[in-house]
Design a protein around this nucleic acid. Structure first.
Length: 736
DNA sequence: TTCACTTGGTCTGCA
DNA sequence: ACCAAGTGAA
């Protein structure tokens, strides 16, 4: 590809960003402004114009999906060996450095990566060990404290204590660090912190990488945390004469990861620390039609403290956004199914349609309806392949082969499948290990008279701990001779995991998954270069998402709004637009929580190219009970002129009617006026869920609101007389 | 002492 | 619905 064809069809701002000389720059790129294209084209341009060879490129993304996408695009434009470039996630790149320099980083060669579930389990064990009250110190909160400290670059020794509570937290942090060290375990934040410390301590190593990486490119910069930023700064060598050119692309309106430590302030810091003189704004949107864009722009206007950016499109207004008020979650799903069917019949591929939701729990009902309607679909995220319990068990065995001192792995499978080791035996084992300061494995081995004795063991069948120790010892022995896939198969058979799931009812899927693990190992071996097992385990922790069957088929895309970032679809269904769900109730207590939810909503809306559906329900099963919801405040923030209300039946609340008539919804049955929208919420002072008192009927709970002005009425479930619809003008309700 | 079964509390988002 | 703790039987 020639340079001129490379740069054709670009707008002036895009071209400027791509062809910028060796200097650091901040690119403010709105949704759908061709950000990924700019990033990849810049890399190709730099290589093609001879300014850098592939070795000198370091590109950081947030998801493996994005990294893969970038790599594919680059190799399609440029016939080069992609291995030379370092393209990956922060975690992936740090992991790569740590594996290469494990000794300098003070890690054992077989160090294992803890995902957040592993981390939480370890924290629970430690809290129990310290006999901490888990009511006073919820494990989740301890986990948050530790990760937060690490993501700010703070080791336990540097954490400041200002009260009794944080002194306890610090104590847990220290115990946790110690245990991780003993087990050779590294959590996600630790990957970054370790790597940062490695580079800042080791001048020679740091210089080596600085010499090498001439150009550093960062995608989704608004979602970096303080530690990642420090890491970038260190690697780039700001101020040094061989400093790298750092090209960061970000959009403050799409910052949706504050909950895991992301700090938007990095964008301002970047301007200051890297002496940025040039900010390039990409404001032309090539993705969405006008109505979608106007709606999203109007919504995000409600946030203050924005860097400021105005997205526009050269396309026409397109269709209005379609809003649907379902009576319940089944109704909502049925509506979506009908619309998907219609659109599919009109010739739109299922894979070009996405069904988005705020939280994973919502996918269940949706999946159920799609399944019954025989619509192929694919769920991203949620319960991922490597998160499933049977896979976790299998991986724990593999981890023990790689590193028997991994107490977490040992505890997971020492009695799974059950082999007669209960809490009593375990307690003894733990005491023995504690007394000699060794790992559980060492204690177990000692109890059985050492490795050699175990191998010569002829007394069968073995029971309890001896059986377990024998199993692991033989597996470790075989590992040196068997290739990875055979080893996985051997492990699955001899651990009796397969036998266990084979005899359990309704576990056909689990067996299938275990067999799929063998396939995963087979396809992985081709990629692994040296230590296949360690790399396979790292892959399982770091790239948990991408392994799923049926990816080739044309299927409707289901995912959370978070997972949808960076993607685009012809049609987007955004479901569950209800107060408490979106914005999520937990966000209301967080500082700037609603603003982040709004950005999330903004991300969701801007995924749509042509058609966007917004749906909400009056009632929904959640946490095993029916909840009555009011429409999301975000709906009120979108101009009515962009919306078209679809309505199946005006009073579906009192007579639940499952949406089934496929002709009815395509035509607008009832166009709701803007005044009736606010009547669903609290404009007249009454809220759903509120407890009220009536002169005649006594006390009750408001479960629905409707109408406005003199028509305004509420549905109340009274303690004594049950459900009543009341006109607010006459019923003199009082608060309790 | 272990294991299978029941029960009660919990549930955002993710590399 | 899913997981941890509790309970009774072998």
């Amino acid at each position: 590809m020639t340079t001129s064809s490379l740069l054709s069809n670009l707008n002036p701002q895009q071209r400027e960003a791509i062809t910028l000389p060796h200097q650091s720059v901040l690119v403010l790129a709105g949704a759908g402004s061709g950000k990924t294209r700019v990033l990849t084209t810049r890399i190709v341009y730099l290589i093609q114009s001879g300014q850098v060879n592939p070795h000198g490129i370091l590109a950081v993304t947030f998801t493996n999906k994005a990294a893969k996408e970038m790599l594919t695009r680059i190799t399609s434009m440029l016939p080069i060996n992609p291995r030379g470039m370092w393209i990956g996630t922060f975690h992936g790149l740090c992991h790569r450095m740590l594996r290469t320099h494990y000794q300098d980083a003070g890690l054992p060669q077989a160090f294992q990566i803890l995902d957040s579930a592993d981390q939480l389990a370890l924290i629970k064990r430690i809290l129990k060990d310290l006999s901490a009250d888990d009511k006073k110190f919820p494990p989740r909160q301890v986990q948050w404290f530790i990760n937060n400290a690490k993501e700010s670059g703070l080791r336990a020794a540097y954490v400041t204590i200002d009260d009794v509570f944080s002194r306890h937290m610090l104590e847990f942090y220290q115990a946790y660090e110690q245990q991780c060290h003993k087990e050779g375990a590294v959590d996600f934040a630790e990957l970054l912190l370790r790597c940062y410390e490695l580079l800042s301590r080791n001048e020679i190593l740091c210089q080596h990488y600085r010499e090498r990486f001439n150009h550093i490119l960062v995608d989704e910069f608004q979602d970096t945390n303080p530690l990642q930023y420090k890491w970038l700064k260190l690697l780039a060598g700001t101020g040094a004469k061989n400093a790298a050119a750092v090209f960061v692309v970000g959009d403050d309106d799409q910052s949706i990861y504050a909950f895991r430590g992301a700090y938007v302030g990095n964008m301002k810091d970047f301007e200051r620390d890297f002496g940025i003189t040039k900010i390039i704004k990409l404001e032309q949107n090539y993705r969405s039609h006008g109505n979608i864009l106007d709606a999203a722009n109007a919504l995000i206007e409600n946030n203050s403290e924005r860097l400021g950016k105005n997205l526009w499109t050269a396309e026409g207004r397109g269709e209005p956004l379609r809003v649907f008020n379902a009576s319940n979650d089944f109704d909502e799903a049925a509506f979506i199914v009908e619309e998907v069917k219609t659109l599919h019949a009109e010739g739109i591929d299922l894979s070009k349609m996405a069904l988005l939701y705020r939280s994973n729990a919502q996918s269940r009902v949706l999946e159920h309806s799609l399944f019954n309607a025989a619509i192929p679909y694919r769920v991203y995220g949620g319960m991922r392949f490597f998160d499933r319990q049977e896979i976790k068990h299998a991986l724990a065995y593999l981890r023990l082969i790689a590193n028997p001192d991994d107490d977490s792995a040992l505890l997971r499978v020492i009695n799974f499948p059950a082999r007669g080791i209960g809490s009593r035996s375990l307690e003894q084992l733990q005491n023995a290990a504690k007394a000699q300061g060794s790992s559980l494995w060492a204690a177990a081995l000692q109890k059985c008279g050492g490795e050699t004795a175990m191998l010569q063991e002829t007394q069968r069948p073995l029971k309890g701990i001896a059986k377990f120790v024998f199993l692991i010892v033989t597996m470790r022995q075989n590992w040196s001779t068997l290739p990875l896939p055979q080893m996985v198969e051997y492990m699955l058979t001899h651990s009796e995991l397969l036998a266990h799931y084979a005899k359990e009812r309704e576990s056909a899927e689990r067996l299938e998954n275990l067999n799929e693990l063998i396939n995963a190992a087979i396809s992985f071996v081709h990629e692994a270069e040296n230590d296949a097992l360690a790399e396979f385990l790292a892959h399982a922790s770091l790239e948990a998402g991408e392994h799923q069957a049926g990816s080739g088929q044309d299927a409707l895309q289901l995912m959370t709004v978070h997972a949808a970032k960076g993607l685009e679809f012809h049609t987007v269904f955004l479901s569950g637009l209800e107060e408490g769900l979106f914005p999520h109730e937990n966000s209301l207590n967080e500082s700037n929580g609603v603003a982040e939810e709004r950005r999330l909503m903004y991300v969701a809306m801007t995924r749509a190219r042509r058609r966007l559906y917004l749906s909400f329900t009056q009632s929904r099963m959640l946490h095993g009970q029916t909840r009555y919801n009011i429409a999301s405040r975000f709906l009120d923030e979108i101009p009515q002129s962009c919306l078209k209300w679809l309505q199946p039946s005006p009073r579906s609340m009192s007579t639940p009617s499952y949406y089934s008539n496929s002709t009815e919804h395509t035509a607008t049955k009832a166009l709701r006026s803007s005044s009736s929208i606010s009547s669903r919420s609290s404009s007249n002072g009454w809220r759903i869920g509120q407890i009220v008192m009536h002169a005649k009927f006594g006390s009750g709970v408001i479960i629905n609101c409707e109408g406005c002005g003199s028509d305004a009425r509420v549905q109340v479930n009274f303690d004594r007389v049950g459900m009543k619809w009341l006109l607010l003008e006459y019923a003199k309700l009082t608060t309790v």
